[in-house]
Design a binder for these strands. Structure first.
Lengths: 339, 339
DNA sequence: CTTGGCACTCAGAGGAGAGGAGTGCCAGCC
DNA sequence: GGCTGGCACTCCTCTCCTCTGAGTGCCAAG
């Protein structure tokens, strides 16, 4: 028994199961794939694959189903990523090029991804922690209310209103604005807090308190942890995934609302490399996603991942196409943002 | 047969059905509610109620189920709105008071509403069309890119980047900013476009094109139609609604993604009055929501609805508590925003 | 108008049985 | 040694059937 054939069998099982959603048996396998051997031989291979944990039987006298490990093997060694159709490529171009700002780009992207993959799409906003400051603006709304606006190099615009007990003259405000920008522009957001406090310290005691409030607001705005955001689309696709997945949909919806879970997952994977990563079933280490896989990729400047996009669906998804789509969309998104 | 009793029967049917999710029969009715008559009498009433379209039978030899019309009657004439528990009131206070800005307030509100009602909660952002301008800010990002920020009296902050072909000197920009604010502050957003164009026309021809770009960006930002936003929470509650509702969940999720549908619904109802309104089943006039009801209320200054919040759930929901909750949360939200 | 009685209907539960897909194993063959 | 056909076995699934019981509509009497 050659190892090659056993892997071919595994691949065939995964492909057939993904297509039919039914356990696949030895006879059906030889019929659909030209493996050149008899069902009995395949049965031996299957027994071995089961022994090694790549496939499993729902019950005796049923065909085999890939396990998480089986999918893992498939993804790592057997799958050949499918490129996008040219119609899809055109759709990406025409849709994303028409976007007017960051919000719009990400919104269109996530919808596109959901539509292409027929699954739930996730887009993470460019992480504040890896961004640098492009500009800080202070806008007086009333004598004692200042709107603090923070603009990053990735195009994100964050704002917050600071209630500054005392009054701040336009003079002081202009001064503060100028100095903040001098110090902070180009610096990573993570350092904004300390930079800003240093600036605040140089102000006369009279204004110290009010300036402090403004600086606090700026610091919270720049606090990356709190401000991680994600956008979803295609949740209805979950319900369309078929009756076999119906049970799982509630916990998945829950996980989607608990954005924390998703964020941690996205951050964990593909943190290292910018390319597409896959988390299969239990690998997500989250109970609610035990029957779900996440295909995600970083995006941003080459070699510098600013955030991630991904697709969430049943473990029995079509990995080759999904991976291809996620990769293509991530690349195009990166290109758009770079311009 | 008195009309009173027939209505009492209808109320009993609705209440029991909502509680048990099973068709309710004449015998069970007299047992659970002290109606003082025999099952046979009730049967006559039920036949009449069915004749009038308030209840229906899933099949012969099953109990009765309220129709949309039955629920409508229940809501309009039979239900007594249930006030919030004091624990819930405390929860509202402690949670919403801790919010830091509009985004945060609405986010907390929608989560709260979902948690209280165990259904899908919707919050619409304060409509731009009914807001007035509090401030306009122009921030140069680069020589030819201007960030246009628009702040409304309802606390919304909208921004957009304008690519202004030519360069704009700080001088011109400051001038433009000052004049725009002079003209637009306090004016309704709907008039911002025309105001801004008038201002632009007064600039020297050299800058006219660049200024025009900025003004365009401002106008789109103020374009209310495009910028209606809603926030959702509790979609997982849909899946928790029980197996009888499982079929309906996919179209509902779809409707939720098609925010347009929801927006139209919200706008249509309670447009007139600020109080709680209810759309039941087919009354939503949207196929996907045929088995769903929407309970919504306006919020904002008294008599002046700036936007709406609501709850979406199976037609067989507990209307008295849901209405009570939505009303209470809407009122509290209004109070928070007024301060 | 209300009521008890009664015949009738029909969904749903439960069980029996047939069918069939799929398996594991073994003995023979290349 | 690996491959193959044959074969007995397992057990899920589907279908059909029956039976039960809740619930009804109607009627005649109170």
């Amino acid at each position: 028994m050659t190892d090659d054939r056993r892997l071919a069998v595994l691949r065939a099982i995964v492909e057939d199961y993904v297509r039919t959603r039914e356990p696949v048996g030895s006879k059906a396998l030889v019929e659909r794939h030209s493996l050149g051997v008899s069902p009995a031989t395949i049965r031996n291979d299957m027994a071995a694959l089961e022994e090694e944990g790549y496939i499993a039987q729902p019950h005796t006298s049923a065909g085999r189903i890939p396990t998480d490990l089986g999918y893992r093997m498939f993804v790592d060694r057997l799958a050949r990523v499918k490129p996008l159709s040219s119609a899809e490529k055109r759709a990406i171009h025409s849709l994303l090029d028409a976007a007017v700002d960051l919000d719009d780009v990400l919104d269109r992207t996530v919808r596109l991804l959901a539509q292409f993959t027929h699954q739930v799409a996730v887009v993470q906003y460019p992480s504040l922690s890896r961004s640098t400051v492009r500009h800080i603006e202070l806008v007086p709304l009333a004598a004692d209310r200042i709107l603090v606006v923070l603009i990053t190099d990735t195009g994100r615009v964050e704002q917050r209103v600071a209630e500054v007990g005392a009054e701040l003259t336009d003079q002081v405000l202009a001064d503060l604005r100028a100095r903040l920008n001098t110090v902070a522009v180009g610096a990573p957001l993570t350092s904004v807090g300390t930079h800003a406090e240093e600036v605040a310290a140089t102000f006369p005691a009279d204004d110290r308190a009010a300036v402090g409030r403004v600086v606090d607001a700026l610091a919270t705005t720049a606090d990356s942890e709190r401000e991680e955001r994600i956008v979803l689309a295609g949740t209805a696709n979950l319900a369309r995934s078929g009756p076999d997945f119906a049970r799982s949909i509630e916990p998945v919806l829950e996980a989607l609302e608990e954005q924390v879970v998703l964020l941690r997952l996205l951050t964990d994977m593909a943190a290292d490399t910018g390319d597409v990563g896959v988390r299969i079933g239990h690998e997500t280490a989250y109970e609610g996603l035990a029957e779900t896989s996440l295909v995600a990729s970083g995006y941003g400047a080459p070699g510098q991942v600013v955030a991630r996009i991904g697709v969430l669906g049943p473990t029995r998804m079509d990995y080759p196409t999904t991976i291809g789509t996620v990769r293509a969309v991530a690349r195009y998104l990166s290109r758009i943002l770079a311009s």
